[in-house]
Design a protein around this nucleic acid. Sequence first.
DNA 1: CATGATGGTCAAGCAGATTGACCAATACGT
DNA 2: ACGTATTGGTCAATCTGCTTGACCATCATG
Lengths: 147, 147
Amino acid sequence: MQNSEALALTAVLLAAAGDLTRRINDGVEARGFEGRPAFGFAFTRLAPDGATVTELAAHLGVTKQAASQLVDELVRKGYVERRAHPVDARARLVVLTERGWECTRAAEAAAADAVGAWVEILGEAEVRVLCDRLARIAPYGPLRPTW
Amino acid sequence: MQNSEALALTAVLLAAAGDLTRRINDGVEARGFEGRPAFGFAFTRLAPDGATVTELAAHLGVTKQAASQLVDELVRKGYVERRAHPVDARARLVVLTERGWECTRAAEAAAADAVGAWVEILGEAEVRVLCDRLARIAPYGPLRPTW
DNA sequence: CATGATGGTCAAGCAGATTGACCAATACGT
DNA sequence: ACGTATTGGTCAATCTGCTTGACCATCATG
């Protein structure tokens, strides 16, 4: 494995990730929702039972202040609500609204469409292999919406 | 391919790309250079013969103003120089300095190290396959350092 | 019950991008 | 050849999303 190949792998990986993210975001908007890529990643943590701001922050790999601002935005757009936490009076449980669930489903559909384009190129089996290999090398940690 | 799998693929792809980018950046810093991920992507366009600000902007997928600011930073840190363009008096050719070349080589070495960690998990052959598949689905367009 | 740790918000600031205005030099149509 | 539109680049102002720092309320522990 030569050095230039390693850099090329990085570039193609970034390009693929960026392409997929963009396609999904476009698809979500086309379905009548306004949002940014970070929303989708937040939804995957918020579903199905909600999460606290701190948990969301850990999931996204940002500070709790940043996560709180994101939640503000999600509340403003009607996708989530802040509720009292059932067992901890300090904490507040952030849960999806009905519209939030609709947006989540839209994101899933858009993701399926985007991956579908890849299936047409590589075939279902190859995409599954790709998934499996990536899962084995990807770190477990938080996924950052931006760098 | 179910919807949830499509979202999972996106997550794992982003995690892998983010992980690789972070490892390379850490490796470059460990070798005594200060920089951010965008530098490496700029270098791949600047080498070997330089490029104009506009070309760099297209490569990175940002406005030419943003690219110009990045070049300012690279000049300040001693990695590149602005030279007169040989055939177009409007344009200026941005070329790597000797230190810029050193940093580029450091980035390549760091990338090789980072990918090496993957080779240990998947084996050389699998990583090559991964490269190939990704190359077939990744778009040709600019690669954005941030989203 | 005192003390520290934890969940959350407010406020200010920064980094890296954007849009808009502008100038110099090139390319093009007649 | 010449006026006009286009292109390369920069300056300036602004925006967005995130960070750091301060702070309060509540939980957990001696």
